[in-house]
Design a binder for these strands. Structure first.
Length: 898
RNA sequence: GCCCGGGUGGCGGAAUGGUAGACGCAGCGGACUUAAAAUCCGUUGACCUUUGGUCGUGAGGGUUCGAGUCCCUCCCUGGGCACCA
């Protein structure tokens, strides 16, 4: 048999045998528990997979293979997220049509995944652009519509001028298009939204029920942004001289000239010295009407200016506060006194009520504004001593003139001052009491606000799922009836987007012109759904992928959902995961799925980084934002002086030219070597630096496995199982069995914990141990042969998920039939795994002074007396009195002496 | 600014409060070879007065018989969010 790892000789033939025998076909056998392992839905890029992508697929494959061997029915499917902007943009660039292009790319992905031996059930594969799939995307859209969760609105949206489409809030990062980096503009175009805000609280609450990385849960909570506070009404007074405050002013409820504010710090209301409206606030129109022409013009010009600012400009760091004093006043309900009313762009129309009460003494933004416009600052909290000492001041000095310090005192500690009857209360007492007071007064109520906005889902692009809506002649929307689904995307040659916000579909009369449900002339909705709609339910379709008559059969969902282990990159922390959770909850409410949360356990793999050359900018060259060097191609770098180059570890990507493909890795080292390397090189969640020496190490390990098994083959007895329990263990048999069972215990636990690096290292350790134990074992005893046979079988079983080609090759090499995938995962016998002699540490005052060999059965008393008689330890006790002896069974003895 | 991670040999990393550095990479020495590669064996935290000892997990404190691990303060670093009231 083979005694070296020669991947070219056997890996592809095993892949063919797996395919021929339909090895990974999903089973639903009676009496076996289920396991659903899933990778994030990939968009098949033309660049193909890199070894970076493999870091996602290999670990999922290991856990799915292990689960199958452990007796589970395993669902491990793969499909392709084919609709959407990336595919369409690439097709435009290549002057081809996205449909055939995507077919070709997906086939390439599938080939590459097979090349590294991933055990997918390809019979369940689909693309989100298949009409048989998006028919049901449309059907779910209708469900959302019917439940009042999909609506069309003329809101101002984020428009990407390069992609020529509207974007969801989540797709805008720092005012730039997340995909292409173009600054987004504001445009008022009618758009479709999903009412995800209705589910905000449940999306927070149910995070408690899933086993996800805390960081991701936090990001979601952060994005949803729940905050508790008080919303109340404030009366407007158009002139300071108009009137003295009147008791009636405090009872204003629905008078025409008032506005509402939201605050999380109602306890600071006595410190309110001005109010601010967002420039877009509807009350501003009324204010302009009542202002002098000069003031109205000033307000008007400020509004125009803030409208012209992009989100990016408006959010720029350390931006000076700007605003306009409207000359109008608002009545502080706590004091009854008027405070000036401003408009300023640091208040956003999109959050809360678009208006705030400003408390400059305890809010940095309000404080900065107050300094700029020379407004009163009234402290309502006694500052903490740490604040006073940091500003080298005293309480009296601070309370007398808080404006002289550059930072505000903004914690929730301290005692209220200057707050009427509430003076002397703590933050907690004050906010509770004032909240009740506002409610009793009838001008407001305690309220919860969320930062989360509704999900903008329409795109003015061709390559997406058509929205199943038809408008009648009066423009009323109705849904397309189920029997007319899917609304198919027409095949066209020219599908380029337009600048005017209209969809390419709107220029196709055969598509647009249709009839309504009552047979009159109708006009189709021509926007398409953003790609995130398609990926919000694919994990459900995988449970029942080819049903022509329904999206899925509920029994299949009940059987397979939730996904037990969902693996993908942390960059989808908010968007995809939030949307998929939302759809699942809607479908749960409709009784169509059995789970509230789709993904029970989530794991984020680290990225693979490539060593990439950069150089300093030359004369006349400028660096982009966030860059500190200019990318150099590898060919260029080879020509340059090493001292002119800076090498950095950056994520592998085609644009960086630092990609290693699975083809290269498999050709040079082998598929199993790639799998072992990626599992071993670092903890699963951590980024890794690609290193060919490490790949060579994996090859070496596999070769040593081949050699060991080939050496042991003469001792292989396939019937070891029936004999081993009745044969007394002599010679090295016990040590061999100990190593074997220790490996089984460790590997089983490590795979479950996603600790693949220590799973591999446990196999390496066991390999070393077995190699040592069998070095001079020419004529093993009967029991040693049986122990070695157990070791061979269990080692290959445990190796199989990580290096399945090698495991199968070795299994057949020792003369066995079939696949290691069909072997039963062994159960570790704790008794066999336990050592009968242990090394016990002897410490004096917590420092290691000696180690002693003791039988595992030794009592605490025996351990203590053996430690006391250690000569090495004794020299550290000489002249001291033993105060205490601590015995940790199986570990150590610590003698405390002074 | 706020919220999460993370700082351990030359490198990647291992360690339920109990012998820090498993396993691997690189290095060094040796065997085999005409030679090299491959392979195998040994060795490899630092320092010292070397059959032994001292120091050592970003820094400083603390809890404990005992701290990489728990607590407090700080530094560095990666990521996310951010005029969100």
């Amino acid at each position: 048999m083979r005694d070296r790892y020669e991947p070219q000789a056997f890996e592809s033939s095993w892949q063919q045998k797996w395919l021929d025998s339909d090895l990974f076909r999903t089973r639903e056998d009676e009496g076996r528990p289920k396991f659903y392992g899933l990778d994030f839905f990939p968009y098949p890029s033309g660049a193909g997979l890199s070894v970076g992508h493999c870091r996602n697929y290999i670990p999922t494959d290991v856990i799915c293979r292990a689960k199958f061997m452990q007796g589970y029915n395993v669902l491990h499917p793969m499909g392709f997220d084919a609709f959407g902007l990336p595919a369409e943009n690439e097709a435009i660039k290549r002057k081809s049509h996205p449909a055939p292009m995507i077919d070709q790319y997906a086939a390439n992905y599938q080939r590459q995944m097979n090349l590294i031996g991933i055990g997918y059930d390809w019979s369940r594969e689909f693309k989100s652009s298949d009409p048989s799939y998006y028919k049901w995307t449309q059907w779910i859209f209708k469900l959302l519509y019917d439940r009042g969760l999909a609506y069309r609105s003329n809101a101002e949206v984020n428009w990407c001028p390069k992609d020529r489409t509207a974007l969801a809030n989540e797709e805008v990062v720092g005012g730039l298009c997340e995909r292409c980096g173009t600054p987004v503009e504001k445009r008022a175009i009618p758009q479709w939204f999903f009412r995800i805000t209705d589910y905000a609280q449940r999306l927070i609450d149910d995070l408690d029920d899933v086993d996800w990385p805390e960081g991701i849960k936090n990001q979601q909570r952060n994005w949803i942004g729940r905050s508790e506070g008080v919303e109340f009404q404030m009366r407007v007074q158009f002139s300071i001289a108009a009137q003295e405050p009147h008791p009636d002013d405090l009872e204003v409820v629905e008078k025409p000239h008032s506005f509402r504010v939201f605050t999380t710090r109602i306890d600071t209301i006595y410190g309110m010295t001005f109010c601010v409206l967002a420039p877009e606030h509807p009350l501003v129109a009324e204010i302009k009407k009542r202002s002098t022409p000069e003031k109205a013009a000033e307000i008007e010009s400020y509004q125009a200016k803030s409208k012209s600012l992009s989100d990016m400009d408006r959010q720029a760091d350390n931006r000076e506060k700007t605003g306009v004093n409207t000359g109008t006043f608002a009545i502080n309900p706590a004091t009854g006194k008027p405070v000036p009313l401003f408009i300023a762009d640091y208040v956003m129309m999109g959050y809360g009520t678009g208006a705030i009460m400003a408390v400059p003494a305890h809010d940095q933004r309000d404080f900065d504004f107050a300094l700029k416009f020379d407004l009163d600052v009234i402290p309502v909290f006694k500052p903490e001593s740490s604040y006073l000492s940091a500003n080298e001041t005293t309480e009296a000095e601070y309370l007398a003139n808080p404006k002289q310090f550059k930072d505000v005192f903004s914690t929730k500690e301290g005692i209220l001052v200057n707050s009427g009857e509430y003076t002397g209360m703590s933050y907690a007492q004050g906010s509770a009491a004032m909240g009740e007071w506002i409610e009793a007064l009838g001008i407001g109520e305690r309220k919860v606000n969320y930062k989360l906005r509704d999900w903008l889902i329409s795109r003015q692009r061709y390559w997406g799922c058509p929205i199943p809506i038809v408008y009648d002649k009066d423009g009323n929307a109705e849904t397309v009836s189920d029997d007319l689904l899917p609304v198919e995307l027409p095949a066209v040659d020219n599908y380029e987007p337009a600048d005017d916000g209209s969809s390419p579909l709107s220029r196709i009369p055969e598509f647009v012109n249709t009839t309504t449900n009552d047979g009159t002339l109708g006009r189709r909705e021509t926007d398409t759904l953003g790609g995130f709609a398609c990926s919000s339910w694919y994990f459900l379709r995988f449970c029942d992928p080819h049903s022509p008559d329904e999206a899925w059969n509920l029994d299949r969902i009940k059987y397979w959902m939730p996904v037990d282990c969902y693996v993908g990159g942390a960059e989808h922390a908010v968007m995809h995961l939030l949307y998929a959770r939302f759809w699942t909850k809607v479908l749960y409410d409709a009784g169509l799925v059995s789970v509230k949360e789709p993904f029970q356990r989530l794991m984020n793999q680290g990225q693979v980084l490539g060593y990439t050359p950069y150089r300093a900018p030359r004369h006349g060259e400028t660096l982009g934002v966030g860059e500190d060097g200019i990318l150099v191609s590898f060919a260029e770098a080879a020509q340059m002086d090493e001292s002119d180059l800076t090498w950095k570890w950056v994520r592998m990507s085609k644009s960086k030219g630092n990609v290693v493909t699975p083809e290269e890795a498999v050709e040079n080292y082998g598929a199993d070597a790639l799998r072992i390397y990626e599992l071993f090189v670092a903890p699963f969640e951590q980024n890794v630096q690609w290193n060919n020496d490490g790949m060579q190490g994996a090859v070496r390990f596999l070769s040593r496995v081949f050699r060991l098994i080939a050496d042991l083959k003469p001792h292989w007895n396939p019937d070891w199982r029936s004999m081993i329990a009745f044969t007394p263990m002599d010679g090295k048999a016990k040590d061999i069995r100990r190593a074997t069972h220790q490996l089984v215990a460790k590997a089983t636990d490590d795979i479950e914990r996603f600790a693949f690096n220590t799973y591999i290292s446990a196999m390496m350790t066991t390999l070393n141990t077995l190699t040592d134990l069998t070095k001079n074992l020419e004529n093993p005893t009967e029991s040693e042969k049986l122990a070695l046979s157990e070791a061979i079988e269990f080692f290959l079983t445990v190796l199989s998920p990580a290096a399945p080609h090698s495991a199968d090759e070795l299994w057949s090499g020792i003369g066995e039939q079939g696949f290691t995938y069909h072997l039963d995962w062994p159960k570790a016998d704790a008794e066999l795994a336990a050592a009968d002699e242990l090394t016990i540490a002897v410490q004096v005052n917590g420092k290691l002074r000696d180690t002693i060999q003791m039988p595992a059965s030794a009592s605490n008393e025996e351990l203590e007396s053996a430690a006391r008689s250690s000569e090495k330890a004794a020299s550290f006790i000489d002249g001291k009195t033993i105060r205490k002896v601590i015995v940790v069974p199986g570990k150590l003895v610590n003698i405390v002496a002074n």
